[in-house]
Amino acid sequence: MSKLKNRYLSLDVFRGMDVALMIIVNSPGNGDTSFGILKHAVWNGFTLTDLVFPTFLFVVGNAMSFSMKKYEAEGSGAFLKKIFKRFSIIFLLGFLMYWFPFFEDGGLKPIAETRIFGVLQRIALCYLFASILLHYFKTKSVLIFSALALIGYHIILLVFGDLTLTGNAVLKLDKFLIGANHMYHGNGGVAFDPEGLLSTLPSIVNVIAGYFTGKFIQKNGQNFETIAKLIMAAGILVIAGFAWDLIFPFNKKLWSSSFVLLTSGIDIFVIAVLVYLLDMSKPGKWTYFFEVFGRNTLFIYLLSELFIISLAELSMKGTNAYNWIADNIFIATAGDYFGSLLFALWIMFTCWLVGYIMDKRGVYIKV
């Protein structure tokens, strides 16, 4: 196995772990009886679940550290065409996912009430801006941008609002640009989008962190010195994150600057461990489970979301299929908390099985 493939093994496994956890936290049988570790922090704070999305952005950047090499020889025209095409497809898929199932009450579901920003849309925007920065600017300039983005974002939030759910600048800008009907309403009915436009600015830094981590590993090789330096960098970022947390608390929904430093530090530490386990040691067969998720990441994520939405839309015995299956099969058998977890695992393993069949048939869907 070549070094390149080994590095992709680390990336596939890391990405696969993240997607598996993402599906689990997105599909609790009963959200009220999910284990605390599988819930987002209500506002300020940090849980394992809060790490899922920034990790996805980190591995996007990590993958870019390989793919950007190909763009350098193709010229600006071909580069811009590729990244704008990919941006458009991912953003549109995210929008269509929120519009799905497209019809309700015998007519077309109103676009005027469809959420515009979201998970895939943020991935698309971060990919676009990070790609442009990394292609056209030198490392020093990109690092300066990253620092200014985090500091500037903190200042913007302080100047144009506060750090509360109803008074922050992220909400104000989204309401001004797209209106409350196009925003997420899962925070007690309050129109606030945790993937809002303004909070996309600091999230770009998670992609950049993943990119530079990948470049560092490629340049310095897979050895104990590299791992030691990565762990030191991770420690510095985590400590800096906790220091910033004192004045700008960890907040996934606002994507606070302290949150960016903390999650980037954790992700660098995890990738360092995976480099040791998968690239410097014999990985064993356990990695294949996560490789399946890592090889068709976008497709499996979309599949999981459409599966959940479809179950929620399908009527069954006075409720919907999602609730009926969760309550009458899993929760009735294993209790509230373990039943909710088993239901989420059922969703995850079902999606994995589809990915497994695709992998065995050599079907890989990329955008």
Rank of each mutant, 00 (worst) to 15 (best):
T226V: 10
L163V: 13
L133Q: 03
M1N: 07
K285T: 09
I236Y: 14
K138H: 12
L158T: 08
S65V: 07
F87R: 00
T297M: 14
F192H: 06
W43E: 08
F91P: 03
I331K: 01
V260W: 09
P249S: 08
A240Q: 12
K39N: 07
T213A: 09
L303C: 07
K140V: 13
I144Y: 04
G36I: 02
S146P: 10
K138S: 14
R15H: 00
I208R: 08
T287A: 08
I347C: 03
S256N: 11
A326V: 03
M358N: 04
F216E: 05
E225S: 02
L21Q: 00
L48R: 02
E305L: 05
I217Q: 15
F349V: 15
W43N: 03
A334S: 03
K3R: 05
D267A: 05
S67F: 04
T319F: 12
A20K: 03
K317S: 11
G107I: 00
S340P: 06
T166S: 04
I204K: 02
L198I: 12
R15K: 00
I309K: 10
Y288W: 05
G94M: 13
A312N: 07
I268T: 04
D359V: 05
K138C: 08
I156E: 11
F14V: 00
R295W: 09
T166W: 01
P101S: 05
L314G: 00
F53I: 05
F349K: 06
G335N: 11
I227C: 14
N26K: 09
T263C: 13
Q222E: 06
W255Y: 13
A41P: 08
H135I: 09
A112M: 10
E195Y: 01
D174L: 11
K138T: 10
V270K: 04
S131K: 01
L306A: 06
S310K: 12
K366V: 13
N6D: 14
G179N: 11
F14L: 07
N187Y: 11
I357P: 08
I90Y: 13
A130G: 08
S10R: 10
G61M: 02
L342Y: 01
S258D: 12
E72P: 09
I144A: 04
G179W: 10
F330H: 01
W244N: 01
T139K: 15
E305K: 06
G94Y: 14
G36P: 07
K172D: 15
A228R: 12
F212Y: 15
T164N: 15
H40T: 14
L120W: 05
G94H: 13
L353D: 07
S27F: 01
F343R: 01
I329M: 06
L314H: 03
F216R: 03
T33R: 09
G214Y: 14
S281P: 11
H135F: 15
L302I: 12
G221M: 10
L171E: 02
Y8V: 09
N223V: 05
S34N: 09
A191Y: 01
K285M: 10
N62K: 07
G179Q: 11
L57T: 05
A332Q: 14
N220L: 12
L201Y: 03
K252S: 02
H40G: 14
K82Y: 08
N220Y: 13
W352I: 04
F46C: 07
